[in-house]
Amino acid sequence: MMKTNIRLIALLISAVISHAEISAQISLTRTKPEGQSNWDLYIKGLIQTDVMIDFQDMKLKDGFAAQSIVIPQHNAISSNFSIKQSQIGVGIEQKNSTDRLSAYIEIDFYGPNGTTAPRFRHGYLQWNKWLLGQTWSNFSDLEIFPNMFDFVPPDGLMFTRRLQWRYSTPLAKKSILSLSLEDPNIPSITLPSDSLNWKKRTLLPTFTALYRYGTEKNYIKAGAVLSPISYDMKYTSQEDYQARTIIGWGMMVSGKIHVTPQTILSLQSSFGKGYATNNSDLNEEKYDAVPNPSRGNALETLRLFNIVGICEHWWAPRWSSVIFYSYSKVGEETFIPKEMTREFRNFGFNIAFQPYKKVRMGIETNYGKKETFENKEAHAWRIQVSTALSF
């Protein structure tokens, strides 16, 4: 599998270098059936190599996430070489038509069990204002993602991929509204261990709304998410299961401003209850709802607050840096399991050199710290050296 991946990457690099005009994507072919509009088939992606050095044990090796820091503190040095952040996407788009129709599919190499097997990332159909398939959740802000190498964003950001059905429409010259119904299997919950096999139930889809106001460079966004959480419960083996549904919710404010042509400031904050799986660090970590023993182990949603600040500065046309700080805090309810994380923070900084428009290289450092509800804590440093070629 490794040899196959290396050959594939080598062929892609050769194709990009031999392409006369490097653009955001490479057009493979254009066709125009008689009496119909043009169709454009294209490929785009990223080839990235990473060398990472950790100074503390972490469960996640190919991206930095404070939630994955191992407790207790160990201060063990380890290294990791990776190409898993590389991505390849293929799309087809209808041109010169009053109807906009397109399809796109993308993979990376973040395979299971530490392998470099291809992993499905995106796959969707788009027709005019409608989108159907898997891509970034509508309760996210792609535009705030800074010029950094780690594909795991600052820990407090709302940043996850979801199966969804989305509708987007402009309301005015500078404003856009997007609504979506997303995968009903999104909620990630903790069930009691002595629960007679209580079961998570997939029932109602998650609903999101996102409003954007501003220009291409400067904007503000406000978003909301409603996440029904359903499960089956019973108290004796003779009983039938009873279905119960509680509602998680979250609010998000996000924005970006170009202070000068060289300096960009970004900010995102979010809060709510039962929406933690939308957080890039807590995705599928069972923080949406936990059992409350004083109420017969009925599930209750957990509060979560996040705030992230990012500054990106271009020192020269080919040199840039990003610095960011992120803080997240889970609620203080007394029934939360003591081993769960109460708060975590994340600080990062990089220096990037871009000798060509589509080539980046540089060094990046990440620091994270987490504390549990039993007052145990650990922190971690990572240094990452990366080279990336996009096409």
Rank of each mutant, 00 (worst) to 15 (best):
N147L: 06
L12Q: 04
V308I: 09
N80R: 15
R166D: 02
A172Y: 11
F207L: 15
N292P: 13
S230A: 11
I336E: 02
K200D: 07
P170G: 04
K174D: 07
P228N: 07
K84G: 06
E143L: 08
V330W: 00
Y325V: 11
L267M: 11
D108F: 07
A276C: 10
A24T: 13
P146C: 08
K44L: 10
A380V: 03
F335T: 05
H313N: 10
T245C: 11
S294A: 15
S270N: 09
W136C: 04
M340F: 05
F207D: 04
A224G: 11
T387W: 07
I43M: 09
N279C: 11
K357P: 05
L177T: 11
K369V: 06
K44T: 07
N75I: 00
L191A: 02
R295F: 08
F109N: 09
N113L: 06
F145I: 13
M340R: 11
Y104V: 07
F207E: 02
Y42K: 07
I105E: 06
A316P: 13
S270H: 05
S180V: 02
N297R: 05
C311I: 14
M233N: 10
L304F: 01
T372H: 01
P118W: 00
K234H: 05
I53W: 08
A380D: 03
K338Q: 13
L181K: 04
R201P: 04
L226A: 14
N113S: 09
A222Q: 10
T4P: 04
K369F: 02
D50V: 07
A15K: 10
Q25I: 02
Q354I: 12
L389T: 00
I310K: 06
H379S: 15
Y356R: 12
G331N: 08
R121M: 10
K200M: 13
T169K: 15
W249E: 03
N346K: 03
Y231F: 04
A352L: 15
S168I: 11
V90D: 01
L41P: 02
A172V: 01
I26Y: 12
K32V: 05
I307F: 02
L60Q: 15
F353Y: 14
E284F: 06
M361S: 12
L171S: 01
T334R: 13
T4R: 07
Q262E: 09
N346Y: 11
L171D: 12
D141Y: 05
A380K: 12
V308C: 04
N279I: 00
S37C: 07
S237I: 14
D232H: 04
A289G: 01
S390W: 10
V90G: 02
S237P: 09
W39I: 06
A24R: 14
K357T: 09
T387S: 15
C311G: 14
S175G: 05
R382Y: 08
A15G: 14
I257M: 15
L196A: 03
E377W: 13
I13N: 09
R30I: 01
A222D: 06
R7P: 00
E93G: 14
K376E: 14
D57L: 08
K338S: 15
S23C: 10
Y231G: 06
F64I: 01
N366M: 05
I105W: 12
W165Y: 07
S86F: 08
Q67C: 05
L125I: 06
P317T: 03
E216Y: 12
L282H: 00
T245V: 09
V322M: 03
E312F: 03
E312K: 05
E312M: 01
A378D: 13
L204W: 15
